Each structure stands twice: as C-alpha cells, then as structure tokens.
Computed example of a mutant assay.
Amino acid sequence: MSSDGVYQHHRIPVTVTPADLERLLWVLVAVSLVGDVVTTFVGLHLGLAESNPIARSAIEGYGLAGMLVLKGLAVGIALACRPLLPEEYRPIVPAGLAIPWLAAVCINVYMISMVL
C-alpha cells in the first residue's frame, strides 16, 4: 500500500483558542453542576441513594446547602489551581470538573429512568 503523498486535511472552519475552549468548558461546568445537583435530588426524592460517601454525608448533614458547598469547594480549588498552569493547558481544569459531573448526570438519569 502506498500513498502518493496526497493527504486530505480537514480543518474546522473556525479557530478555537485555548481561552475560547476554556470559556466553553466553564459553561459546561455550570450546566453539569446544575444537572448533577438536580438529578441527585430528584433521585433521592424517588428513594435512590447517593453513592458518593462524601456527598452523602454533606447531603444528610446539610441538605441542598451541603451539596452546593461541596460543589463550590471543588470549583474554588479548580479556580485556585488554574493560574499554576500555562495558558494552553488551562482548559484541562474545567474539563476535570465537567467530565465527571456529566457522567454523574448520565448515571443519575439512567437510575431515575429505572425507577419511573
């Protein structure tokens, strides 16, 4: 198999800078945070249990406020650590929050759908 040196390169028609990507990921953090909190409390209302022991303790002890403080601490730590990275690597910070929270939303929605 050979190629005649002909390669097709497909490029996105817009340029996405690390700053643009980071901004988009912070929006995703906000959406996933709200989604996680809402689906968690809907699931709890339907009789499901929180599987994360730290979140479970916060919820059992302080309810919604405990969950929001826990999420706020995670976002605060992320914001505090963000300046330690070079600008081109900073999008990893919101991605590190958004990805697990989006996974939690998917799991929560699945578990809720099993109960309904």
Score class of each variant (00 low, 15 high):
residue 3 S to M: 09
residue 70 L to S: 01
residue 108 N to Q: 12
residue 104 A to F: 13
residue 3 S to A: 11
residue 31 V to P: 07
residue 16 V to N: 00
residue 63 G to S: 14
residue 40 T to V: 07
residue 82 R to Q: 12
residue 76 G to D: 07
residue 75 V to E: 08
residue 41 F to R: 14
residue 108 N to K: 05
residue 18 P to N: 00
residue 24 L to T: 08
residue 23 R to F: 06
residue 80 A to L: 13
residue 5 G to A: 12
residue 52 N to I: 02
residue 45 H to C: 06
residue 56 R to V: 10
residue 95 A to P: 05
residue 17 T to E: 02
residue 97 L to M: 07
residue 94 P to C: 11
residue 7 Y to C: 09
residue 47 G to R: 00
residue 90 R to T: 01
residue 42 V to W: 14
residue 21 L to S: 01
residue 77 I to S: 00
residue 66 G to C: 03
residue 24 L to N: 00
residue 4 D to F: 05
residue 25 L to T: 02
residue 89 Y to A: 15
residue 58 A to R: 01
residue 57 S to A: 15
residue 56 R to H: 15
residue 81 C to K: 11
residue 64 L to A: 10
residue 14 V to D: 02
residue 8 Q to F: 05
residue 66 G to I: 02
residue 32 S to M: 11
residue 102 L to I: 14
residue 92 I to G: 11
residue 51 S to V: 15
residue 46 L to P: 04
residue 112 I to A: 07
residue 74 A to C: 06
residue 1 M to N: 05
residue 13 P to V: 07
residue 67 M to H: 09
residue 115 V to R: 14
residue 38 V to R: 05
residue 47 G to Y: 08
residue 30 A to C: 06
residue 112 I to M: 09
residue 64 L to E: 12
residue 1 M to F: 08
residue 58 A to L: 08
residue 115 V to E: 03
residue 106 C to Y: 11
residue 92 I to T: 13
residue 64 L to M: 13
residue 92 I to F: 08
residue 72 G to D: 13
residue 8 Q to R: 13
residue 46 L to R: 14
residue 89 Y to N: 14
residue 107 I to N: 15
residue 19 A to I: 00
residue 8 Q to D: 11
residue 42 V to T: 06
residue 20 D to K: 14
residue 74 A to S: 14
residue 42 V to M: 05
residue 44 L to C: 06
residue 81 C to I: 11
residue 98 A to T: 02
residue 32 S to G: 06
residue 31 V to F: 04
residue 24 L to A: 14
residue 83 P to T: 06
residue 66 G to D: 01
residue 12 I to Q: 03
residue 49 A to M: 09
residue 1 M to E: 12
residue 5 G to V: 06
residue 101 W to A: 03
residue 93 V to A: 03
residue 98 A to W: 03
